[in-house]
């Protein structure tokens, strides 16, 4: 909670319109590994670790529909908002906080570093 409220903690990673609608971009180089940043049709933006809870498939490469993504490897569905696999599958990809302001997409430095 603390880090998120702190203005200093937000890092602008890319512009909103650099993410395809119903698609994703990958952010590399974070301590926690690759991060997938998704954009839905209603212009919500979500970030998840780019590792499917099933066998680590790259969620960023999946088909985005509604507020879910379908993993390209074996078709698990994952909720973008929480990172949870949709029942009956069980698991969580791990979500990251996101903020969109003036067309910029911000992630939390602390979370990217594996803290908070």
């Amino acid at each position: 909670m603390s880090a998120i409220d702190n203005r200093e903690d937000w890092l602008a990673v890319l512009m909103l319109d650099e993410i395809p609608v119903l698609g994703a971009r990958v952010l590399e180089g974070a301590v926690i590994g690759p991060v997938a940043v998704f954009r839905t049709e209603d212009q919500s933006v979500y970030a998840l670790r780019d590792r499917c809870p099933h066998k680590g498939g790259p969620l960023s490469q999946g088909i985005v529909h509604g507020h879910r993504v379908t993993c390209p490897l074996h078709g698990w569905n994952v909720e973008l908002e929480s990172g949870d696999a949709v029942a009956p599958d069980v698991g969580c990809a791990g979500r990251l906080s996101v903020k969109v302001e003036d067309g910029r997409v911000y992630l939390s430095k602390a979370e990217l570093a594996g803290g908070a």
Binding site: L14, E18, R25, L27
Partner: peptide, 10 residues
């Protein structure tokens, strides 16, 4: 879509 081939580097 070319953007997919360019990951954002932290």
């Amino acid at each position: 879509d070319w953007r997919q081939f360019r990951p954002v580097q932290l």
